[in-house]
Computed example of a mutant assay.
Amino acid sequence: MHRGAAYRLTPAPGPSTGRSPSCPSSPTWATRGAAWLDAGHWVIWLGAAGHASASAERWAAGIPSRRTAPAEGVTAFAAASANVWSEIGNADPDPWTVRLATAATAWHAHRRTG
């Protein structure tokens, strides 16, 4: 199973409102790579949570390292992510993996046609 093996939105303590907003976090898959890769993972997670790819990319653009990322690198990462999540979704087609595979595929399509 691949559940929990990538970034997820987890509750974070909120201000005095008592609400718990979500924030991206990951206790797994620690690797070396371009700093903007985290924002790329978040685009997929935001898509899986219901955001359109364009909206998720606008959010990611607020991350300094993402603003300077090479467009062709981001598109290549979107393609690779779509492939990985498609493979995971086909091997374990539960609602969670299907949402992530769908979001990654939508993001890659958005990057190609943008």
Results as ranks from 00 to 15, higher is better:
H2C: 13
R3V: 00
A5D: 11
A5T: 01
A6K: 01
A6N: 03
Y7W: 15
R8H: 03
R8E: 01
L9P: 02
L9F: 01
T10Y: 02
P11Y: 11
A12F: 09
P13L: 05
P13V: 00
P13W: 02
G14F: 12
P15N: 11
S16T: 03
S16R: 00
T17L: 04
G18N: 12
G18L: 12
S20A: 01
P21Q: 11
S22D: 04
S22G: 02
P24Y: 01
S26E: 13
T28M: 00
W29N: 13
A30G: 10
T31F: 07
G33I: 15
G33P: 14
A34Q: 06
A35V: 14
L37S: 00
A39C: 06
G40Q: 06
H41V: 05
H41L: 03
W42C: 03
W42D: 08
V43K: 04
W45C: 03
L46K: 09
L46V: 07
L46T: 06
G47M: 12
G47H: 10
A48R: 08
A48N: 05
A48L: 07
A49H: 12
H51L: 08
H51N: 09
H51S: 05
A52C: 15
A52K: 15
S53P: 10
A54H: 12
A54Q: 13
A54M: 12
S55R: 02
A56L: 12
A56Q: 07
E57H: 01
E57K: 06
E57G: 02
E57I: 00
W59D: 09
A61N: 14
I63T: 11
S65T: 08
S65N: 05
S65L: 01
R67L: 11
R67N: 08
A69F: 12
P70L: 15
E72A: 14
E72V: 14
G73Q: 09
V74E: 01
T75F: 05
T75R: 04
T75S: 00
A76P: 12
A76H: 12
F77K: 04
A78Y: 14
A78C: 14
A79V: 10
A80D: 12
S81H: 14
A82H: 10
N83Y: 08
N83M: 03
N83A: 11
N83D: 11
V84R: 10
W85R: 07
W85Y: 07
W85N: 00
W85Q: 01
S86K: 13
S86D: 15
E87V: 01
G89C: 13
G89D: 12
N90S: 14
N90G: 15
A91E: 06
D92F: 15
P93G: 04
D94M: 08
P95Y: 06
P95W: 06
W96P: 00
T97W: 02
T97M: 11
V98A: 09
R99L: 13
R99C: 12
L100N: 04
A101H: 05
T102K: 05
T102E: 02
A103G: 00
A103C: 01
T105L: 05
W107H: 14
A109I: 11
A109L: 11
A109Q: 14
R111L: 11
R112E: 10
T113C: 04
T113G: 09
G114C: 13
G114W: 02
G114Y: 03
G114T: 06
